[in-house]
Design a protein around this nucleic acid. Sequence first.
DNA 1: GTTATATGCTTTCGATGAAGACGCAATATG
DNA 2: CATATTGCGTCTTCATCGAAAGCATATAAC
Lengths: 138, 138
Amino acid sequence: MLSMKTQYAFKALMYLAQKDNGEPILIAEIAEKKNIPLKFLENILLELKKAGVLDSKKGKGGGYFFNQRPTDVRLAKIMRLIEGPIALLPCVSLNFYQKCKNCDERHCGLSNVMKEVRDATLLILENKTVADIAFINI
Amino acid sequence: MLSMKTQYAFKALMYLAQKDNGEPILIAEIAEKKNIPLKFLENILLELKKAGVLDSKKGKGGGYFFNQRPTDVRLAKIMRLIEGPIALLPCVSLNFYQKCKNCDERHCGLSNVMKEVRDATLLILENKTVADIAFINI
DNA sequence: GTTATATGCTTTCGATGAAGACGCAATATG
DNA sequence: CATATTGCGTCTTCATCGAAAGCATATAAC
């Protein structure tokens, strides 16, 4: 299960993408509309800014807005940024790899299965962007 | 990422399946061979016993052994038992469903993507058993 | 029935994550 | 320049997780 932080990050990005008209959007507005604790959201948006996904403007008329285009921000990137590894085991993570103790990975049935899960997950998350999840209307 | 508890559970089950000859196996032996904190492992094996996956015998010659056949224990079952939900969001979980606040799930792009991830993951975890990950030899 | 051997149960401690309180710093507007 | 607005930074609190310790209970062997 994703941490609250990651869930909030996705929801905030969706909201920002949906209201994106060049104008900065208040943290407080996002927090209220998407039911996210204000101070927690401040932290999350700050991380997204430091990573170059968002940018912000201070003072009156300030707020947050996209630095990259929503069509260019893959969900996998956000996951790795806020949540950390996408894989279920450290020893099968591409970006956060850690070796297993007492387990020869080439002969480990568990890590082989978890590699399958990782690949299936990445196939989806690397090909969906923030724009994809923001503009769906079924 | 899976919690340590779940990772340990899988490793312990693999070890038990590999050494399965009807004889009980000591918690201490599993803990030592698989590098798992002893007292932590006791808790994990107890949960697996209460769920009917394992059984145990006390006293000399005691230890843990399978109650169900390893070929009948699906990985998804262990995940749900120890880790909880397999889905990445509460609102797309089959067994631990919780409704989203401020989000109409039928029109939510995020939950649609996370459903895809869930289905892809389940397709793998529901079709692999403890026996599958224990007896692989590539 | 006593003893050694194992599991079973409860409590505790530290680390991490979620969330709130308060004050500081930057900026648009008059 | 003054002030209101808004993002930024730090510190505290509360819950959960990982891990360990201690005692209780069951049982096989003698």
